[in-house]
Amino acid sequence: MIRIDCPFCGLRDHSEFSYGGDASINYPPLDAPAEQWHDAVFLRENIRGRQLETWQHTSGCRMWLNVERDTVSHEIFAVWPAHRGYGRVLHAEKENTE
């Protein structure tokens, strides 16, 4: 069992989470050439090793998370909110409580 340290809920089994996919993809602007959209939608680097990906805590807080994970050992190196604004709020709250 992989355990993911959700920044909102704490350490949880990965069966509570659904998998998004490769978080390193930057979607191009809507009027970008079709080739750029083809690459973003269809092509994957498919890393064997440390990869940046998105997970959603579907059976918990339902927040989208960025996770840095090894795709062979499944070791998790970092977890943070996918939405930048939430990351800032979380950070500010921690500083306040400290």
Binding site: H14, Y19, N46, W55, T71, V72, S73, H74
Partner: peptide, 9 residues
């Protein structure tokens, strides 16, 4: 989820 590990969860 994506994985190259030849072991199941």
């Amino acid at each position: 989820y994506k994985s190259y590990a030849q072991r199941g969860n």
